[in-house]
Design a protein around this nucleic acid. Sequence first.
DNA 1: ATTAATTTTTAGTCTAATCTAATTATTTTT
DNA 2: AAAAATAATTAGATTAGACTAAAAATTAAT
Lengths: 216, 216
Amino acid sequence: MTNSEENYIKEIYKLSLINSNHVTTNEIAYELSTKPPSVSDMLKKLSKKKLINYEKYKGVNLTSKGQNLAIYLTRKHRLWEFFLVNCLKYNWDEVHNIAEQLEHVKSEDLINRLDKFLGFPKIDPHGEPIPDINGVFNYLDSKSLDNLGINNIGKVVGVKTDDTDFLKYLDKINISIGSKLKIIDINKFDQSFEIEIKNQVRNISFDVAKNILILC
Amino acid sequence: MTNSEENYIKEIYKLSLINSNHVTTNEIAYELSTKPPSVSDMLKKLSKKKLINYEKYKGVNLTSKGQNLAIYLTRKHRLWEFFLVNCLKYNWDEVHNIAEQLEHVKSEDLINRLDKFLGFPKIDPHGEPIPDINGVFNYLDSKSLDNLGINNIGKVVGVKTDDTDFLKYLDKINISIGSKLKIIDINKFDQSFEIEIKNQVRNISFDVAKNILILC
DNA sequence: ATTAATTTTTAGTCTAATCTAATTATTTTT
DNA sequence: AAAAATAATTAGATTAGACTAAAAATTAAT
């Protein structure tokens, strides 16, 4: 299994979650910054390996074998992201690139040990669930901050967007994964939130609140 | 810089430390499990990049640019090995393969953060020194256990051989990096050592003692 | 100092992954 | 339902890295 094949599988998986199954050649090419002929070639190859169902001109979807692989790759990626943020103190917006490389290291044992070392985390720094060793997503019922009422307390578990400006803003106002916060008040005029975090009271806009995932 | 180029640079570095400079095509091919023509091709390429000094039929050695690169790769490799052994609890004999892959991840920042996370270690699990961020080896004066006299205390910092049986034996008798041990007695007949480790007295042969690196 | 053996290099082939240009299917529009 | 537009595929070329077989250079042996 080459790195390139792995990247295609991951991308098909990602797109089929959004577009409900039917993934097209052009979409894949666009997302992977490659050209349609390259995709066509690779689809044939992946099809021969029984990782995707492919009929010419008809788009593709993953076989169960392909799906298992995609979930395993997702597991690797998210565990590495967790490591980068929690151990190496990277910001949320900096980890993707490096995790992308780390995820291609070939060793199942390595990943299971990493999982153990990190304490079997269930959610990655972007709030996405991390599949366990059996490929099972142990979803936690996280919701966006704007669903919380006054006086409720929640713990930040992720974000809904990777927008750099947004993540930088969170850093600036001291909100990070694991932060505990409490809704003090909600301004009825603009729906902005008054929250308490680390004994400080701050105001955040409705748009920001909507993009913060919390658990309570 | 491709993975393959990096592997060649590392190998030339390793061989030139042993053979004092003049590294030959066949040696490289043998060590990298490849064939001489492949090496010839790569040498031309590395020469064009000013990483090695290469004259046809005359063997090669690293330029200072190539040497810096080799030291940086060594740094990466040894830091990852340290991580694998100390954080993920791998045995000494299992880490090389995986470190080999991890070392190709492209990010200087990642390595410097890893270094910090690990506490800026100076010696890797095999007792080899880890270059710092400036490529400086901060050698510690480690010596093999058989140089220690009766009643001296030392701390295990590495091993001189990667032989699997040897490493497994050390695991079995509870000797690992960081272990403190004391020489109780030396048997004059076969030069075997009576040592105290973790409040237990054990006997080890001269051959084993010779292959354990300690600091005292 | 020739010949023999060894080492290294060149020449030409192969595979994986990519590309451009051209062709063929499929969809959409009129 | 035919023409136009879009999408996907094939054909053929390119690059990195490796290979085999053959040639050239160097070293060792007689």
